[in-house]
């Protein structure tokens, strides 16, 4: 056997050591940002989540005017917490579209009856397929989309009162 081959295990271990030591040095960052920021939203066509609102497709999100795309679910508690802020944004004249993640029509209807319905259109994303394509890893999340259908901003987690002004600002700049 070639003597040099015997060093392979040590070389492999050194490689492992380097990778892991590098991993230990790096600070942990638990927020996962979407890779889709700055890109047009992916092609999709979601059926209507409830009867009272139309379905949602990609073309609905490129209307020449910036909009919000909010991912929510009736089973999600922070979504209840952010409901007043979404209503406030709607009052301020922002057009908001919704994607209901892993939900049923009855549950969505109940949720909206109770906490308010700020949405122009709501698509139902039963298997979170579109959510994943958007690069979203949880609910609630909100995307700011410009008039050409390009994602300009991603807001992770519920929209707090203090976030509303910032979102309005970004929407204005996108216009």
């Amino acid at each position: 056997m070639n003597r040099w081959l015997l060093w392979i295990p040590l070389v492999l271990f050194s490689l492992f050591f380097a990778i892991v030591a590098g991993g230990l040095m790096r600070p942990k960052d638990n927020i996962i940002e979407s890779k889709m920021i700055g890109k047009p939203i992916p092609e999709f066509a979601l059926p209507a989540a409830i009867e009272q609102r139309p379905a949602l497709t990609t073309t609905d999100l490129a209307t020449g005017k910036p909009q919000l795309l909010n991912i929510f679910a009736s089973w999600c508690l922070p979504c209840i917490a952010e409901a007043p802020q979404l209503l406030a944004l709607e009052q301020a004249g922002v057009s908001i579209n919704g994607i209901a993640s892993r939900d049923t029509p009855e549950d969505i209807a109940n949720f909206l009856n109770r906490w308010g319905n700020p949405y122009v259109r709501i698509g139902t994303d039963v298997r979170s397929a579109v959510q994943l394509e958007l690069g979203s890893s949880g609910v609630p999340e909100t995307f700011v989309i410009d008039g050409n259908g390009v994602i300009v901003h991603q807001h992770i987690g519920d929209i707090r009162k203090e976030d509303v002004a910032e979102l309005l600002d970004i929407l204005e700049k996108a216009g």
């Binding site: 056997m1 003597r3 015997l6 060093w7 295990p9 040590l10 271990f13 050591f17 030591a21 230990l24």
Partner: peptide, 25 residues
Amino acid sequence: RGSFILALLAIYIGGAMALFALRVG
């Protein structure tokens, strides 16, 4: 603590593998 264990790994595994390379021939 991770760094501490990693140092131990380097000594023990690295040492054993170096020994292997030197001795098994």
